[in-house]
């Protein structure tokens, strides 16, 4: 059976066009998402992980555009669909949950309006039916008094409740894939945990595949089946979560894992990756991570390819050996 989503050599640029190349926010990225599985797409801010998510949804804002590559969803290349064909997939078969629930819902429209229109965008049902489905969806994500809450405005909900509403909207059409772009970053820690559990439960029940975009390795380890690590627009490492997190091959992944606070014992100074993430306008030649990497050699002046290692991929000439971590 083919993968649900297979992104091949995706390049997303800002600006450019007509032969000239723009800023490459996503550079030659390939990954697969299997049905019912959760992929954790990890990276720092500016690494291109969110842009990757928006590329799949074809929701890039100008001047962003998909310059090349394929986004095969259930056998169809999304990059080649017409706008109307893409619209029919958005929200119906691929849904998205955004980072900041305070900004995701339209402040001047009721929850009812915003949910009913989402139902009716894809299914030709009466308003009453759509309203019932909206109410049931709210109940499903654990919102008390869904009937009353439907007529509320977004600002009458707390952040956590709003994100539940957003998740309810995403689940309205039982999509095959949900792209969750750091959906818990803007929430309190206790609420984060609730939302993650709820999300996990609901997607497992419906067999929905998820791309969970985050910078938080703890969430990935708890939630994801597979992981893909991005750095400066490129994929640097991917594979099953269990093996990647316990045995990182790329020095960047290794550095990320080492710098998670909970893994350090008290009194032992936190490990950190030296230097700063370069801006995509001024990347070093060759491997983008070269300037911050203590394993770099002259060989790294050439961009390393993705080396397959069993079920994993690593973009590094000098991968970390397990004994050294």
């Amino acid at each position: 059976m083919t993968s649900l989503l297979s992104v091949n050599n995706l390049v997303t640029e800002f600006g450019g066009g007509k032969g000239a190349s723009g800023l490459r926010a996503v550079n030659d990225v390939s990954f697969k998402v299997e049905r019912g599985r959760v992929l954790g797409l990890v990276g720092e801010s500016g690494s291109g992980k969110s842009v990757t998510g928006f590329s799949v949804m074809r929701l890039l804002e100008r001047p962003g555009r998909i310059a090349s590559g394929q986004i095969i969803f259930d056998g169809v290349d999304l990059a080649r669909l017409s706008n109307e064909e893409m619209r029919q997939i958005r929200g119906k078969r691929i849904a998205m949950v955004f980072q900041d629930p305070m900004m995701t819902l339209n402040p001047v429209l009721t929850i009812e309006t915003q949910m009913v229109e989402a139902v009716r965008a894809h299914d030709q049902v009466s308003k009453t039916t759509a309203r019932q489905r909206a109410r049931d969806a709210l109940g499903l994500v654990g919102i008390p008094n869904p009937e009353e809450r439907l007529s509320s405005y977004p600002h009458q909900f707390s952040g956590g409740m709003r994100q539940r509403v957003v998740i309810a909207i995403a689940l309205l059409h039982k999509p095959e894939l949900i792209i969750a772009d750091e959906p818990t970053t803007a929430l309190d820690v206790t609420i984060q945990s609730q939302i993650i559990s709820e999300f996990q439960k609901l997607t497992e029940e419906s067999g929905t595949a998820v791309i969970w975009i985050t910078h938080d390795l703890a969430i990935v380890s708890r939630l994801a089946d597979d992981i893909a690590v991005m750095y400066a627009g490129r994929l640097v490492e991917s594979g099953p979560v269990s093996s990647v997190l316990t045995d990182p091959k790329h020095p960047y992944t290794a550095g990320l894992i080492a710098s998670v606070p909970s893994r350090n014992r008290r009194g032992v100074p936190l490990r950190q990756i030296p230097g700063m993430t370069p801006a995509i306008t001024m990347l070093p030649r060759g491997c983008s991570f070269r300037t911050r990497c203590d394993r770099a050699t002259d060989e790294c002046l050439v961009i390393p390819p993705l080396f397959p290692q069993q079920e994993r991929f690593v973009r590094c000439f000098h991968p970390v050996m397990k004994a050294m971590t």
Binding site: S21, G22, L23, T281, M282, L283, P284, T291
Partner: peptide, 13 residues
């Protein structure tokens, strides 16, 4: 406008 993503380690002018 030219944008190079390789071989340019200097700060913006």
């Amino acid at each position: 406008m030219t944008v190079s993503n390789a071989g340019n380690e200097t700060i913006a002018k």
